[in-house]
């Protein structure tokens, strides 16, 4: 614990950054739970007589073009955007990591088969694949999540495979084999600790990208469908009122930007924290 704290304090600027990021994360979670438990307004309740209101005590961030409370929708939208992004990320990681470990450690035909499949996915830019999949399956948030999982798992599998490949040749793995450890045990005890850091770094950087992807797809109508409150979809809804009420676009935009910034800050922090080479040099 002391060593951890020491390393944490070595870089003061970063400590402050991480502190801010963590405060934001806590705030977001409080906000989301707040939205979950004590909704003051129904996020779906339209009120055409009270549409496009500006800030008031009743509606802290005003109301949108259908008279719905913007603040409530913003919180609920965060729940959707972040929740779905985490779901996509966790699923992609839990598919990619085991497959990568197995391919890297087993080698041979398993590995070659796996690599060809991965190459197939990587041959197309992931946005294109996602658009095609959503286009084929029909626009909905669940199809979008499915598409994101399908394009993202490959990155994890390849990252893990290359790490495992370089470790599996080292003597300590040979000794583990001599000691009669099964392949499963070797993967779990000896190889898994090597990939946790790498995966955590990639995942925290990916979270921002996935949030952007979901928002972007919802913005062009391929993701969340109305009336579901989702930040990208909210941006799209407010587009028509940009000149009369620009703040309607400003709130979800600011929400997306700050969440993506936070995940990137955390990603940078994890990268520095798990940089083994740096650790050895110090």
């Amino acid at each position: 614990m002391n060593r951890f704290a020491g390393r944490l304090l070595k870089n003061r600027k970063q400590t402050i950054q991480v502190g801010i990021a963590l405060i934001f994360v806590v705030m977001i979670f409080i906000g989301i739970f707040y939205a979950f438990f004590i909704l003051k307004h129904d996020p779906y309740l339209t009120n055409l007589s009270g549409r496009l209101q500006s800030m008031s005590l009743q509606h802290p961030l005003g109301t949108d073009h259908l008279g719905r409370d913007v603040f409530t929708r913003l919180l609920l939208g965060g729940q959707q955007t972040i929740g779905y992004s985490l779901l996509a990320l966790v699923t992609a990681v839990s598919i990619g990591v085991p497959l990568g470990i197995i391919a890297g450690y087993k080698g041979g035909i398993v590995d070659r088969l796996f690599m060809r499949i991965a190459d197939g996915f990587l041959a197309f830019p992931d946005t294109i694949v996602a658009i095609v999949l959503v286009g084929l399956l029909g626009p909905s948030i669940s199809n979008l999540i499915l598409a994101i999982i399908l394009v993202k798992w490959v990155n994890y599998a390849r990252l893990v495979r290359s790490t495992v490949l370089s470790e599996a040749q080292k003597e300590y793995i040979l000794i583990a084999r001599i000691n009669g450890l099964s392949a499963g045990k070797i993967m779990k005890k000896h190889l898994f600790p090597h990939i946790v850091g790498h995966v955590l770094v990639l995942a925290s950087l990916d979270l921002g990208k996935i949030i952007l992807l979901i928002s972007a797809f919802s913005y062009i109508g391929l993701g969340a469908q109305p009336p579901m409150p989702e930040w990208g979809a909210m941006l799209n809804d407010s587009r028509a009122y940009f000149q009369s009420m620009p703040e309607l676009m400003f709130y979800p935009g600011l929400a997306i930007v700050s969440v993506v910034l936070i995940t990137n800050m955390l990603g940078d922090y994890f990268r520095d924290r798990f940089d083994v080479k740096k650790e050895v040099n110090q």
């Binding site: 080292k170 003597e171 300590y172 040979l174 000794i175 001599i178 000896h190 600790p193």
Partner: peptide, 11 residues
């Protein structure tokens, strides 16, 4: 077995 390179022989 004990191998040549002790750095690589320990995880």
């Amino acid at each position: 077995a004990v191998f040549q390179n002790p750095a690589a022989s320990l995880n």
